[in-house]
Design a protein around this nucleic acid. Structure first.
Length: 840
RNA sequence: GCCUGGGUGGUGAAAUUGGUAGACACACAGGACUUAAAAUCCUGUGGGAUUUAACUCCCGUGCCGGUUCGAUUCCGGCUCCAGGCACCA
């Protein structure tokens, strides 16, 4: 019999199998792809890693997911592009460099080499010929080029913007380097400093990005987050004139109906009007405000403070004099940097007015005329106007008794007619500041010429190479002191010029790498191969990228679609997609002891130990089994043993089967389902219902944990299945093969080896995925749940599609059901082939 | 503070469209095999009640309330945790 233990069988040894199978893939070039118009393309992509040193569990999780999807799709006849690369510019390399005195370039390339080896050990099915690293000039040359194209299209501009300034180290700090308002190295209190920086006009695309969001097959929460981030609001821009100054303050409000309740104006400390302020304590206030961090979370949780500027604005319609305050909660970067404050109808303004004893004037009353006490609490709902009447200048027009819509329209019209305002759509989204005062990034290809001013570098001179030798980072970015880097000549007038020493935000690199994979070796930014592969069909990455990276990439894709067909010859006849990622799977965070496994903080678990001990298949299996991809997961090693045990158990089951049966006579086409006995029908039902579930989970749900659970159940069922004749053996063989192939996207090495041992070619990359025998899914008898008043009281076995009346009487005959049906049932609810609920 | 998720046994989780709560594992306990250990296999395992036992019953999906014949699932309120908040990537 088959299931006796036989110690002559080869043991499961991943350390022998895995390198052997990986070698085979390499020899066969199994995962290299080219454009093949006869096959349906499928572009499956993981967010590329930052080469922090070694793989962590978050990487393993992310890359196993796309690997499983890629492998599944290849087995379904798709031409699958599955590339990988390195997001290799960024802050951690500079920090590491300061610690260990190795140049960032060397540190980065060492890390890439090590991590590449790890990825290969994991058996991920990448097309390695497309590998790219963003820190190489082959890559960043093209983003310098594209930046110049965007400059030509007026998508680039320069303006002053605020950064964190460490007054001791005399460097700009990233938000992450500011800890409780102090520089992480110097411990000095961080200041705000305004410096000129380059911006991309992402707001030009705000409307399109917003509107296209609904076309994406992305998680609803990500779409909602992006919509809220873009934050479209329709409202009114209103002009207040400053008394005794020829100065107009613009404010934006979504509640023009509350205009007559505006009792003061609040402006940001960086607002240009501040220089006219004439109160003594203002400088102290500004100095204090300068010492708060620049991130929104810090500003929003700050105690709301302000100071009177000594200036007054004239209310545009009432003509009243209202004070102008400088406030720490108004952001210069957001909107116009000034707001009209209506304490009666806005909570923040209300609190501020109470604190500084400013007037609170009610101009809205509830629709139902209920009593409200405006002195204790703001009334923020829309209602009916009161106390809203213009001055003589505008003929004492009253807006009282109007509702929100009527009042807004009437007030807007009056403002527009008198050039005091405009109806406007505002976005919360701000233009993208791409300048970084750092070394390890792509140089911004701009020069400052004494004669010609600030202009782009000549495209012929690209790339502007980042120097990588003799780098010392102790005093901030070395580019700022390297004459050989920044001294240059203007390519137009040949006079002396100074090169821009800032580098790009690293989100710049990650906003188009997905397109470069298609044209990995092109001598232009992109070529017509992108029109075959793009857009990415399935993108997978961490939920922490739900907004920034994914939004910037959408902007870039739209900008590329607008620019490249007019600038690159091979793209002239092409229409590029306007969205980069058709479907998105956001992977949950991998936590360690409840802490985010940050790429830059180094508190990572090294999966290498697990690979060394159990092999890649076990690590892949466990990572997928531990949880569905979307939820965050606190990593723990418990359970890896279980995954390993399962593989060993399945290996034994399969190898026993291989050894004990003659493969030649073993043919599942000998199975005629209708002629099987009930034991055989049952196990075939289990085999094929499992397969159906597996296919659905791979295809639609991406819940690999339930794929594995179902296959474990099937393995347990086969283990219990007693073989007594040839037909049993055929069915058993069918089950084993289905498990091997169903597992193969997740555990490709063991599957390949077992497949080979069953007499087949071990390269299963393009084997057809098994097909469900729908006949095997049919059953004669079903278990029906019987409830009384919604509580489970019995399970009854009945024939399929039993008539309702018969089902009712069968249910009511059940002894346990009888105990609870003490009176005539009021109602009996039947869910066909599933449930009976008797209501008494 | 704002935006977006989430909370189910000792642990990771399952329950896919409102219909059996806890599949599949981990851990633990007991047993088999072994001189012993490892490995492997078998049994049990949410809490409680009852019973020789089988069965059966009550409670239970963060908290409070609602809708429904029926709620882990839908709605309202709260609470705690996580992600993001524009210079970490």
């Amino acid at each position: 019999m088959m299931k006796t233990n036989d110690n002559t069988l080869p043991e499961y040894n991943p350390h022998l199998i895995e390198p052997e199978i990986q070698k085979l893939w390499e020899t066969n070039k199994s995962f290299e792809v080219t454009e093949d118009t006869t096959k349906e393309k499928d572009y499956c992509l993981s967010m590329f890693p930052y080469p922090s040193g070694k793989l962590h569990m978050g990487h393993v999780r992310n890359y196993t997911i796309t690997d499983a999807i890629s492998r599944f799709k290849r087995m379904n006849g798709k031409n699958v592009l599955h590339p990988i690369g390195w997001d290799s510019f960024g802050l951690p390399a500079e920090n590491a460099s300061m610690q260990n005195k190795k140049p960032p370039s060397e540190w980065t390339h060492t890390n890439i080499a090590y991590m590449k080896e790890q990825l290969k050990q994991m058996g991920f099915s990448y097309d390695w010929k497309r590998e790219l690293a963003t820190c190489t000039s082959d890559y960043y040359k093209w983003e310098q080029w594209f930046f110049i194209q965007m400059y030509k299209k007026n998508l680039v501009y320069r303006k002053n913007s605020i950064v964190n300034w460490d007054p001791v180290d005399k460097t700009v700090l990233a938000n992450e380097q500011v800890i409780d308002g102090r520089g992480w190295r110097s411990n000095a209190i961080v200041e705000r400093r305004e410096i000129p920086q380059w911006f991309l006009r992402i707001t030009n695309y705000a409307k399109e990005i917003l509107e296209d969001t609904d076309t994406l097959n992305w998680p609803d929460e990500v779409k909602q987050m992006q919509k809220n981030w873009i934050g479209q609001s329709k409202g009114t821009e209103i002009i207040f004139i400053v008394e005794n100054l020829d100065y107009k303050i613009k404010v934006f409000t979504t509640r023009p109906d509350t205009l007559f309740g505006a009792t003061f104006i609040a402006i940001a400390t960086e607002h240009p009007l501040v220089k006219y302020a004439n109160q003594e304590n203002i400088n102290d206030f500004i100095e204090e405000t300068k010492k708060t961090a620049i991130n929104e979370a810090a500003i929003e949780t700050l105690e709301k403070k302000g100071v009177f500027s000594g200036l007054y604005a004239i209310h545009p319609l009432s003509g009243d004099k209202i004070p102008i305050w400088i406030a720490n909660f108004v952001l210069i970067e957001y909107g116009t940097g000034a707001i009209m404050s209506v304490p009666a109808h806005d909570e923040r303004d209300h609190a501020f007015a109470l604190k500084y004893n400013l007037p609170i004037v009610q101009v809205i009353k509830p629709k139902d005329n209920s009593n409200i006490d405006i002195s204790s609490e703001a009334f923020t709902q829309k209602g009916i106007l009161i106390n809203s009447c213009t001055s003589d200048k505008y003929n004492n027009v009253s807006f009282d008794d109007m509702n929100f819509n009527e009042a807004s329209d009437a007030i807007n019209s009056l403002l527009i007619d008198n050039n005091l305002g405009a109806v406007k759509t505002n976005y919360r989204l701000r233009d993208w500041g791409v300048s970084r005062q750092r070394y390890w990034g792509c140089p911004i290809p701009m020069i400052n010429c004494e004669q010609c001013g600030c202009i782009p570098e000549d495209e012929k001179n690209l790339p502007v190479l980042l120097p990588i030798d003799n780098i010392n980072l102790d005093n901030g970015s070395p580019l700022k002191t390297m004459k050989e880097f920044y001294e240059t000549n203007c390519h137009i007038c040949k006079s002396k010029a100074i090169r821009e020493t800032d580098t790009f935000d690293t989100f710049f690199e990650s906003s188009w790498y997905f397109a470069r994979y298609c044209s990995y070796d092109a001598d232009v930014m992109l070529d017509d191969r992108v029109s075959y592969w793009m857009p990415v069909d399935q993108y997978v990455g961490g939920i922490e990228h739900a907004i920034l990276h994914l939004l910037y990439s959408r902007f870039f894709q739209k900008a590329m679609a607008d620019i490249l067909p007019y600038t690159i010859d091979s793209l002239k006849e092409h229409i590029l997609p306007r969205e980069p990622f058709t479907s998105l799977l956001t992977q949950g965070m991998v936590l360690q002891g409840g802490v985010k496994m940050s790429k830059s903080k180094g508190n990572t678990v090294d999966p290498q130990e697990l690979i060394d001990k159990y092999g890649a298949d076990t690590v892949r299996l466990f990572t997928m089994f531990a949880a569905p991809p979307t939820i965050s997961l606190e990593w723990s090693n418990t359970g890896v043993e279980g995954a390993y045990r399962f593989l060993k158990r399945f290996w034994r089951l399969a190898t026993n089967h291989i050894k004990n049966v003659s493969l030649k006579n073993n043919n599942s086409t000998n199975i005629v389902h209708s002629k099987l006995n009930s034991k055989q029908k049952n196990i075939r039902n289990k085999i094929h219902s499992t397969l159906a579930k597996v296919i659905d989970d791979y295809n639609r749900r991406f819940t690999f944990n339930t794929v594995i659970a179902a296959l474990m159940e099937l393995t347990n069922a086969l283990n219990k299945f007693e073989i007594s004749d040839d037909i049993d053996t055929y069915i058993y063989d069918e089950g084993i093969k289905i498990i091997i192939l169903s597992l193969s996207p997740i555990t490709p090495h063991i599957s390949s080896k077992l497949w080979e041992m069953m007499g087949n070619n071990p390269d299963i990359t393009f084997i057809d995925f098994p097909v469900v025998d729908t006949e095997a899914l049919e059953v004669d008898q079903l278990e029906i749940i019987v409830q009384v008043n919604g509580k489970l009281r019995a399970k009854i076995l009945v024939t399929k599609d039993l008539e309702d009346d018969e089902l009712k009487s069968t249910a009511l005959e059940n002894q346990n059901v009888k105990k609870f049906v003490t009176s005539t049932p009021k109602k009996i609810i039947i869910v066909k082939n599933k449930l009976v609920n008797i209501v008494v």
